[in-house]
Amino acid sequence: MRMTKLPEIHIKAVNLAKRVNVSEGSLTILHDISLTINQGETVAIVGASGSGKSTLLSLLAGLDVPSAGEVFLTGQPLHSLSEDDRAGIRAAHVGFVFQSFLLLPSLTAIENITLPAELAGDKQARQRALTLLKQVGLQDRADFYPAQLSGGEQQRVAIARAFITQPAILFADEPSANLDATTGQRIEDLLFELNQQQGTTLVLVTHNAELAARCQRQLKMQAGRFVDTEEPAHVG
């Protein structure tokens, strides 16, 4: 059986804006953002704290909806889909790695890893999880709870969880920010290694220039806009 070929453009954003209501009125966090990210590409979104990079990530991953503009993920118009439809797209195509790991404290390492696969109805989840645990070097920690793991170990579990559904796109939000330099370095290596193996599109949010430099492309953000990038030219 011949697999349907995924479109070359994995992520596309057109004139994205995000406004939030505050006590003084409305505050615009993102202004007129447009970008395209191709399949297999690694892209770093960099910028200082409060520049809007995490907000952009949440819009690109369909965790939130824009106030204006359009965003497409694997060709699906996220901006016009319901929360549940977006969840369906995430389940099928997206993996996440968060700054504060965000493992479920009441599930063991292996259960945390299998969770997305189980939600998607994958019967091979456990087998896959064991392989991934081995890949992240935690095969002997399978039944440990997050509280029994170090920060680095927790992030490795989170990375394994992100790859279990063999996502087309991986979003990583400051994956090494909560770790010491050495551990952070290891985590970054692991992330890129698995990314390369699986040919995943990687969108990484960071304020770490070194980490950003490992990506093929860097988009710099400042006060909710891209600066010093050729990005708008890609549109179309």
Partner: peptide, 16 residues
Amino acid sequence: AQAVAIIKALGATTAQ
């Protein structure tokens, strides 16, 4: 609340 947000981010629907 955060556990639910994580599960949802990982692709669970509200019904699930």
